[in-house]
């Protein structure tokens, strides 16, 4: 069911944007520039991995709190590290635990209290934003360790930055789990047909709960690495990822109804969005033009696929 053709559209889009970008401003498709774009895309890409998990698990699953999880993960990491190399691993752990806690709350709300995911994650976003303001007093706070910054952004090997390798690693791991593990099969089964999955003895709530915990954890980790890229944290640092992560999932051919899709598509979707946003910058297009082109391209993507059947 993997369906390679599903990946064809984002792949063609990536090539097309690179060609157009190179024509408009020579150097856009040069390896160094492309690697830079991949570095930028990797943070969104990590969040997309989480969002894909939740959406795959079905039951109208969606996570609007990923942005808040990124911000809180970054903030916790920044304050634990505070510039000290020795604290990188504790910061990583703290950030992941923070994410897991957020996912646990979302997951319990959705699976045990049976609150619609959109409502639950919208509500938890409000609470997390409150926590962020309480912790930071609205100011930037925390500092990345020097070592982390060097691992994340500058080229590490073959001109590619560390965060891109990490993104590929996490993506590969997630793909492996999805296609080769019991949990992966269960996740897709639950997303595709909840009743059938329950009848063969799968615990639908537990599997969905695990998806939410995974999603928030990966998002918080994206926040941890993001602080290595930006150096410090502000409250709204993660907001940009909320709807873009959902759009990247859709561009990558994962159905919002659950049970069908994968991580490779989502990764391509994250690259498409990042390239699309940056191809417009050297054009000197005013902000309004950039927004309009961006929005229209998204609509075009959705017209290409993702149409629902007539009777449902």
């Amino acid at each position: 069911m993997a369906g390679f053709s599903r990946l064809a559209i984002p792949l063609i889009a990536i090539v097309a944007i690179l060609v157009v970008g190179e024509a408009l401003s020579p150097g856009f498709a040069a390896p160094r520039q492309v690697f830079n774009q991949l570095t930028v895309a990797s943070f969104l890409g990590l969040v997309v991995i989480g969002q894909t998990l939740v959406i795959l698990a079905g039951g109208e699953g969606i996570d609007l709190s990923v942005g808040a999880a990124v911000s809180l993960g970054a903030l916790v990491a920044g304050n634990v590290m505070n510039g000290s190399d020795a604290m990188i691993l504790p910061a990583l752990a703290a950030s992941a635990l923070t994410g897991a806690a957020i996912g646990l709350v979302n997951g319990i709300g959705v699976t045990r209290l049976r609150i619609p995911a959109l409502v639950m994650t919208l509500g938890s976003t409000g609470v997390i934003t409150g926590i962020l303001i309480l912790m930071t007093n609205g100011k930037t706070s925390g500092r990345s360790a020097e070592l982390l910054s060097q691992m994340v952004a500058p080229p590490l090997l073959f001109g590619i930055s560390g965060i891109v390798y990490l993104w590929i690693l996490v993506g590969a791991l997630a793909t492996f789990v999805l296609h080769k593990s019991r949990f992966g099969y269960s996740l897709v089964a639950v997303g595709a047909n909840e009743q059938a999955a329950a009848m063969v003895g799968l615990s639908v709530p537990w599997i969905r709960l695990a998806a939410y915990v995974g999603c928030s954890s990966v998002s918080a980790l994206a926040g941890f690495f993001l602080i290595g890229y930006t150096g410090s944290v502000f409250v709204s640092i993660g907001n940009q990822f909320v709807l873009t992560s959902i759009i990247a999932v859709v561009i990558g051919g994962t159905a919002l109804s659950g049970g069908s899709g994968g991580f490779v598509g989502g990764a391509l979707g994250a690259v498409v969005l990042t390239l699309l946003q940056s191809v417009l910058i050297p054009l000197n297009v005013a902000e309004f033009g950039r927004q309009m082109i961006f929005g229209l391209t998204l609509i075009a993507f959705m017209v290409l696929y993702g149409r629902e059947p007539k009777s449902t």
């Binding site: 969606i62 759009i247 998204l298 609509i299 017209v303």
Partner: peptide
Amino acid sequence: LRLQPIVSTFA
């Protein structure tokens, strides 16, 4: 066009 409401109205 029967596009998914969340994504298409956001776009």
